[in-house]
Write a protein that binds this DNA or RNA. Structure first.
Lengths: 104, 104
DNA sequence: GGCCTATATAGGCATCCTACGATAGAAATG
DNA sequence: CATTTCTATCGTAGGATGCCTATATAGGCC
């Protein structure tokens, strides 16, 4: 129950950027995508993509695999599952506090 | 399918802070909590809590209801559901691109 | 109105983010 | 080894974030 709020927050923050979220969604549909494919897809420079990938990597959201000169990125399914569980914990479990319910 | 990536990113970013994520988790367990209860719970000043609540509010993650002098916050179940769907979209749908699979 | 409680806003300051161009590193290829 | 390709890192500038104290605002109560 006492989940690691800090780790979760780091991962949510990592996904909390349009480019990085777009990269993650793209990786869900197409695993093992090379870094070079993202620069053109999201209209940012190569160093910027590399930086965003670094954030995702350090958050533990993606894994890498070198394939020749290029480096392929994939989503870490375990990390995604962890976030899904977190979102599940955000589902409201009670409709209203009984103490507050008495107050008009 | 062309979901609003920007809105999703804003919400993920809003949750991507330990205090705000803590507030959200707290609200899931105890809806309609007054703002004043968070300051002591998270060991930050009242204006800081107010600022964090503003971020959650502007992200559409929480709703407010005035009760006398105090303002009670609740999670917006619809926003949570939206994020759950987003996380679902992050589940890897294919194991490997066939094109890439041929490359050693 | 005057006072109290709860919340929001303003101002200030330090830190972090994000973008870029330039450059360095790593692997394949000639 | 030299070159090419792909990726990462460096350096930096502008803006955003997060925290505080001080102050303003809103509602209830006497």
């Amino acid at each position: 129950m006492t989940r690691n709020v800090t780790t979760d927050a780091i991962r949510l923050k990592a996904l909390g950027h349009p480019v990085r979220l777009g990269i993650a969604l793209s990786l869900a549909a197409e695993p093992e995508t090379c870094a070079c494919d993202f620069a053109e897809a999201f209209d940012v420079s190569q160093p910027t993509v590399s930086e965003h990938l670094r954030v995702l990597r350090e958050a533990g959201l993606v894994t890498t695999k070198r394939r020749g000169t290029q480096i392929c990125y994939s989503l870490d399914p375990e990390a995604v599952r962890t976030l899904e569980r977190l979102l599940g914990a955000l589902r409201v479990t009670r409709t209203r506090s009984r103490t507050l319910a008495r107050t008009p």
